[in-house]
Simulated assay, not measured.
Amino acid sequence: MTKPRLPRIEVCVEGIDGLLAAQKAGADRVELCASLLEGGLTPSIGVVREALKLSTIPFNVIVRPRGGDFLYSEQEFQSMLRDVEALRDLGVAGVVIGCLTADGRVDVERTRALVRAAKPLTVTFHRAFDMTVDYRQAVEDLVHAGVDRVLTSGQRRTALDGLDILKDTVSLANGRLVVMVCGGLNAGNIADVLDRTGAPEAHFSAGKTVPSGMAFLNPFVGMGGTSLEREYQLTLTDESAVRATIAAARVREVQPA
């Protein structure tokens, strides 16, 4: 008799509406962010408080003070510590962090400090892992720093491109660190990626762009360096795409030995 394999599915969302869509579609967990166009930044305390009121599933909050690289000034790092402490006190399920050194290695000292500040929350190291010079050493560094989970596309743009590294990362982690795969996952490929890597968790965003509800559009001003068109577009979590991707991951069956 066959048994369904049920990987844990995390959906990356921007704000409260995304969280509600993901949990309605059957996600196990959410990564709560602001500004997904920049890869995800720390959401406001107001957003987190509202999420705690409305969530029925656990959510982790990204702690990332700006876009760009993961080499932070001392002032930026101190702000990350303060954010982690605030999120811990609010009672979220976990935090998502990532600090590197200038030579492309995990900043073990800072990572340990963030883990200490977060406890007893779970700690995920985000795709800063994919920007390291030696992913094998990075796995060991994360284990020694006390991180619970790593998010990775196998140091490539998509999980399909990074399959070999993802499989090796799962093997290297050997249960000491949960490997959560990501990178272009959808209903058409998630089952294949999970089967070929052996990863126990998967992460995707399933975003869609919709027109703004604004009736008046000023064609002369764009904010923040974005295109004028972007001023009147919203990126939302596609509930139907989340549901379809989760279903594709969970229809797989493991044959008996």
Rank of each mutant, 00 (worst) to 15 (best):
T122A: 11
P43Y: 08
R112G: 03
G183A: 10
T169V: 14
C99M: 06
P58A: 04
L114N: 05
L52G: 11
P65R: 13
T197K: 00
V143F: 03
R230G: 03
I190S: 04
C99P: 06
A173I: 12
A22F: 06
S212A: 00
T245D: 03
S44Y: 00
N189V: 03
S55K: 06
V193S: 09
A51R: 05
A191R: 09
E10I: 12
K167I: 10
G162S: 00
M223L: 09
G91M: 04
N189G: 07
I97Q: 02
G39Q: 10
R252C: 13
G67W: 07
G225I: 04
V30C: 15
T197P: 00
S171E: 15
A159P: 07
G15P: 07
P120F: 10
A113F: 01
V178K: 10
L114S: 05
A93T: 06
E140R: 15
I9E: 11
L166H: 09
R105E: 14
A117P: 10
V170I: 09
H203M: 09
L160F: 06
A249W: 09
T209Y: 00
T42L: 08
K24I: 05
A113C: 13
G98R: 04
Q75P: 00
F129W: 10
F77L: 05
R252W: 13
C33Q: 09
Q233G: 03
G184R: 02
R49Y: 05
G162P: 05
L234I: 00
E50W: 02
S171D: 14
L151P: 08
D130G: 13
V63M: 02
P58I: 08
R66M: 12
R250D: 08
M80A: 09
K3P: 03
G98H: 09
A215T: 14
L71F: 15
Q75E: 15
L177W: 00
A51S: 15
R49E: 15
V251E: 15
D161A: 14
L121N: 04
V139D: 10
R250T: 14
V221K: 06
I62P: 10
D69K: 02
S44C: 01
A27I: 01
R49I: 05
V47C: 14
V95P: 02
G188K: 02
V181W: 09
G188R: 01
R82C: 09
G18K: 00
V13G: 02
E50L: 15
V63S: 03
T158E: 03
V170T: 13
S171V: 12
I97M: 07
E38V: 10
A117T: 03
Q78M: 13
V193G: 12
G94K: 06
R29M: 14
V13C: 02
L194G: 06
L81G: 06
L236K: 03
V143L: 11
V115D: 06
F220N: 04
V11H: 08
M214L: 11
V150I: 14
E10K: 11
Y135A: 15
E10F: 11
L177H: 07
G91C: 05
A27N: 12
S35V: 12
R105W: 09
S205V: 02
Q137Y: 09
G225S: 03
K208C: 04
G224F: 04
A244V: 11
V48A: 10
A86C: 12
P120Y: 07
P65E: 13
T235S: 02
V123T: 03
S240P: 04
D130Q: 12
A206E: 01
F216P: 01
R149G: 04
C33F: 11
L37A: 15
L236H: 01
G162A: 00
K24S: 15
